[in-house]
Design a protein around this nucleic acid. Structure first.
Lengths: 207, 207
DNA sequence: TGATATACTACTCATTTGAGTAGTAATGGT
DNA sequence: ACCATTACTACTCAAATGAGTAGTATATCA
């Protein structure tokens, strides 16, 4: 692919920035205004060039149908928005989206599964799950609903607080193995509310 | 917020799907066509209702300027696209985007830093970094360029292959601590090419 | 029983918008 | 010297588009 001229690069950046900011794709007129062109033809010319160089795509005759073509964009998969809760209150499953404290957006391919309405995220506090390589500050993505299999990491509600535990079976009876010294090693799973099964994890490097 | 009627929900879903699929925001006419309405006014009416209920936003007079308002969308931060390499060839830094094998898209807030052109991702193979809680199959996000600090996890090029190592200093001299039995424990850092410093990690649960 | 919201059809209308014609000027390659 | 490309101005034009008027029908609620 041919290199873009500085002017073309600026216009491409502008379009990309507008889309990223959640605004509508700019029209010819808006591009002209932004760069101080007196004629919107100038913008159209640059768009033509960008299209010819393969950096842009648009459906002819359709307003604001510009699409930035980047080598990465071709590889990008669908992005899922997962609500991040500070602490999950007792009656979780009923409401759809109880006040989310944040939003975790990750593409479905990296996540490894397609999130549903029952997918949520929690920020891990404490190193109680370090034995399963889950660290303090990690964001864990959990799925509410499915029956956990033995060995799965689950989030359980204990004393009004979400805690990560390992789900196990002993003589067919489900147990939760706490890796936190504050709790006994094995807790009967029936008495506790399992909020979700571990599906994915995001970690940022400590500063 | 008032609940949406089934018809309104269908239209909202359609708009969201079109945007997610990378196509342009649908016009009134396109919505009408899709649902078989004879008049585009019907579509406009539904959009009005959705706007009134706070589920949509648009700039008046602007073509295709619809924006879906969801509680999560408000919390969503900018999404970064990071190239995922299968294996990083020797001359990395020179080209901008050498054939990426995939694309990792994560929001900047969850990532903990704003990626640059020097940010890339690798899929971890083997459990050699299990001591630092990095597992086989994890995706690590690295930043090329900055001088690593002692204790940082870095990706180094050894025998034409990227390997994760711990960066250390001994008497002021930089060393790489291999956690892989195939390599000696300490390797002089100067002789190896450090490709990037660990910044973030994404893990999917094993099936 | 009347008000209100929903869910449409069939129109009109002013703007927005992409696309195009014609022309100017500068730059760089051959 | 000639051509292609870039980078614009100043227009025109038709199609796309949002917004609106008028009207019909069917629910739901008080």
């Amino acid at each position: 692919m041919v290199d873009l001229t500085p002017a073309q690069q600026r216009i491409l950046n502008f379009i990309q920035a507008e889309i990223q900011a959640g605004r509508a794709t700019p029209s010819h007129q808006e591009i002209a205004n932004h760069f101080g062109f007196r004629s919107k033809r100038a913008a159209a010319c640059h768009l033509e060039a960008l299209r010819k160089k393969g950096a842009l795509e648009s459906q002819p005759g359709k307003a604001r149908s510009l699409r930035v073509i980047s080598p990465l964009a071709k590889l990008r998969s669908r992005i899922a928005d997962i609500p991040l809760f500070g602490s999950v209150p007792a009656g979780f499953a009923r409401e759809r989206e109880p006040e989310a404290a944040g939003c975790v957006s990750v593409d479905v391919a990296s996540l490894g599964f397609k999130p549903t309405r029952n997918t949520f995220a929690l920020r891990v506090t404490g190193d109680s799950m370090i034995g399963r390589h889950v660290l303090d500050g990690d964001i864990v993505v959990l799925e509410h609903g499915p029956e956990p299999r033995p060995g799965d990491i689950v989030a359980a509600l204990i004393d009004g607080e979400s805690t990560l535990k390992t789900f196990l079976r002993k003589n067919g009876k489900p147990y939760l193995k706490a890796e936190n010294p504050q709790f006994p090693d094995l807790l009967p799973a029936e008495e506790l509310m399992i909020q979700g099964v571990f599906k994915a994890l995001i970690r940022k490097a400590k500063e």
